[in-house]
């Protein structure tokens, strides 16, 4: 037994030659790094080493690493994309709320002068942008023209329609409540019979958006958990693969913190790179959907365009992903390293 293994070992160098060449290059790179870091203190230098080693370890199994990164990227891009969708929907519905005009029906029998007073009063309201006054006669003409019942309506002795004012509110950014307030104020005015506004559906839409937003939040939490699990599982597999190394490091006096360090950095790299992938995915998706959306908006006479990640939102996304990666790998490494020791 003892003797055969010696021969076995002496055969190996030839078979291993190509690998040795590859590693030799790595060694010279490491040497360069060593000379650059001479002034850096021991612990910091080792941290940088651990971070660098963890990154280069990802590239030793590029396909597996890329798959994991894609999964993380997609898991993060999904809630981010949905969040953007909700934000954009709120913007659009805000525009709609602003586009709503109020119809003010004046009490029948109101005199011309009183009507003029009322319109002046309404026009001076700070929330009102402008208004159109239709006298009862004008309203009837309009209705005749639009309804096609002209001849039938001619037989009426009295005009059944009230004078009407079409009131356009100010641009009230994303604030349908203000329109409601205005409607209530107008309703309270004397000689105003009825104020009609069609924002009820906008409100319902907003209520629904709130529900969707909640759903997106829950989905976001679940997908963040999924990222934790993905990172944790990847770290667990890597710990399995590097069992011998871990055992040897322990035997020569490596502390738990030292042994955990490379796995923590691996998790952080997965988070950072996965986060960047999700930023790219979201940005590409916004660009793909943005063109058609702008065209549709144009057809409706709006200059609305889809908004992507704002200013530093992408950075927060990546930072969040880094935190997820760090936490996932910390939990997995602590758990599985302890398990490895007793098992």
């Amino acid at each position: 037994m003892a003797r055969t293994s010696k021969h076995g070992a002496s055969l190996k160098p030839h078979a291993r030659n190509p690998i040795r060449k590859g590693v030799g290059r790595g060694a010279s790179v490491r040497k360069k790094a060593a000379s650059l870091n001479l002034s850096v203190g021991g612990l910091l230098g080792h941290h940088m080493d651990a971070a660098g080693n963890s990154l280069s370890r990802l590239t030793t199994q590029p396909f597996a690493a890329l798959m994991t990164l894609l999964v993380i990227g997609i898991a993060l891009a999904l809630p981010t994309g949905l969040h953007l969708l909700v934000q954009n929907a709120r913007l659009i519905s805000g525009e709609w709320a602003n586009a709503v005009d109020l119809s003010v029906y004046v009490t029948p029998g109101t005199s011309e002068e009183a009507l003029a007073d009322l319109s002046a009063q309404i026009e001076s309201h700070p929330l009102v942008d402008g208004l159109i006054v239709l006298t009862a006669a004008e309203a009837l003409e309009d209705f005749k023209a639009l309804s096609g019942f002209g001849a039938a309506l001619d037989t009426l002795e009295e005009n059944p329609l009230p004078a009407t004012m079409i009131v356009r509110p100010n641009a009230l950014d994303e604030n349908p409540e203000k329109v409601m307030e205005l409607a209530a104020e107008l309703q309270a005015l004397p000689r105003v019979d009825l104020v009609q506004l069609d924002t009820e559906w906008v409100e319902r839409f907003h209520a629904m958006l709130d529900v969707v937003r909640r759903v997106v939040m829950v989905a976001g939490i679940l997908l963040a958990l999924a990222v934790l699990v993905i990172v944790g599982n990847t770290i667990r597999m890597e710990i399995q693969q590097r069992r011998d190394e871990i055992e040897i490091t322990r035997l020569v006096g490596g502390s738990d913190a030292f042994i955990r360090r490379p796995f923590l950095y691996t998790g952080i790299w997965y988070g950072a790179l996965g986060g960047l992938i999700s930023v790219v995915l979201v940005t590409v998706a916004v660009h793909l959907v943005g063109g058609p959306v702008s065209r549709v908006a144009g057809l409706y006479g709006s200059d609305f365009s889809l908004r992507g990640l704002a200013d530093l939102q992408w950075l927060w996304l990546v930072l969040g992903a880094v935190v997820l990666g760090a936490v996932g790998s910390w939990v997995a490494a602590s758990r599985h390293l302890r398990h490895l020791e007793t098992g």
Binding site: V23, L38, G41, H46, I248, V252, G253, G254, F258
Partner: peptide, 25 residues
């Protein structure tokens, strides 16, 4: 032996120093 076969002789021997955060020089 319990050597790490993916590292050079130098890095194997350095391991006990690295785990103790010994300065590089």
């Amino acid at each position: 032996h319990k050597l790490l076969y993916d590292r050079s002789v130098f890095n194997n021997v350095a391991l006990p120093l690295i785990v103790a955060s010994t300065p590089r020089q």
